[in-house]
């Protein structure tokens, strides 16, 4: 037991650079579990930030795609097509290669000096790709929901004299979110799963600071035994997924709280194949 506490103290924050260099072999079960759990910090970091930023970008993109003005609609459609139509794995590679090609000494932009080296690091570069990727998928979901806002809701808004921003803010947007929420929950789960790709796709793990799957494959490669490390990581991801569903379920109930039977209608855990 003390051994395990020691392992948590030694390796608990290893993924953010606090701790010794990893031993080549001979990690105990406690150490393996702690190390992989510490990698989850990165999965949560990427997932939470990408969702938080991507949500707003996706709302804008969905509105642009639904717009009648082709100058807004066309770029949004193209953006969504490119990011939904190509593999995330390739997007990571392209972004990394493009960031590497930027001049090392930084660029002058509008008289300001911009550092560029941080873009090639996973915490920034991969986050940018994940944000753009999830906004494209979420925008498609929001766009579908936006088109399914009941006509009656809009007519009621007109009757109350709502228009423009207040009509959007009070009627269109809440209904869109309500309709989109189950699909958006799936997207969030998928995004958290996709964060495991980061350290396998060009972005190097700086000083052995990686995510949960990076450590799992690190251990499996060193010990030639995939039957311990990968199942540990799998259990962590199942727990993470269940937490996500819990949180999104709470939001879902809040979005639907005024509707009859809302308390009975729970968000069902639906499989993530509908990305």
């Amino acid at each position: 037991m003390n051994e395990c506490l020691q392992a948590i103290a030694d390796l608990g924050l290893r993924s953010i650079g606090i701790g010794e260099a990893l031993p080549r072999t001979g990690l105990t079960l406690c150490q393996q579990m702690t190390l992989i759990a510490s990698g989850l910090i990165w999965n949560i970091y990427f997932g939470v930030l990408a969702l938080a930023i991507g949500f707003w970008l996706a709302t804008g993109l969905a509105l642009a795609k639904a717009s009648r003005n082709p100058a807004l609609r066309r770029p949004a459609e193209a953006f969504i097509f490119v990011f939904r139509g190509s593999p995330l794995f390739i997007q990571f590679f392209i972004a990394y290669q493009a960031f590497v090609l930027l001049p090392r000494e930084g660029i002058e932009l509008f008289g300001l000096h911009m550092e560029t080296s941080w873009l090639t690091r996973a915490w920034a570069g991969a986050l940018i790709v994940l944000v753009l990727n999830t906004s494209a998928y979420s925008a498609e979901i929001f766009h579908g929901a936006l088109r399914n806002v009941p006509k009656g809701d809009l007519e009621a808004a007109d009757a109350y004299g709502l228009s423009g921003w207040s009509r959007f803010r009070r009627v269109v947007w809440p209904t869109t979110l309500r309709l989109a929420w189950p699909a958006y929950t799936n997207e969030a789960i998928f995004l958290f799963h996709a964060t495991t790709l980061v350290f396998f796709s060009g972005f190097p793990a700086f000083r052995q600071q990686g995510d949960a799957l990076y450590y799992a494959s690190f251990i499996a490669d060193r010990t030639y035994n995939p039957f311990v490390a990968y199942p540990i990581a799998a259990v962590y991801f199942i727990l993470l997924t269940l937490c996500l569903i819990g949180i999104f379920g709470v939001v879902n109930r809040r979005l639907n709280r005024h509707l009859p039977g809302a308390s009975a209608k729970r968000l069902r855990f639906r499989p993530n194949y509908i990305r």
Partner: peptide, 9 residues
Amino acid sequence: MVRGVPDIL
């Protein structure tokens, strides 16, 4: 099993 665990794993 595929619902909670990333396919890459």
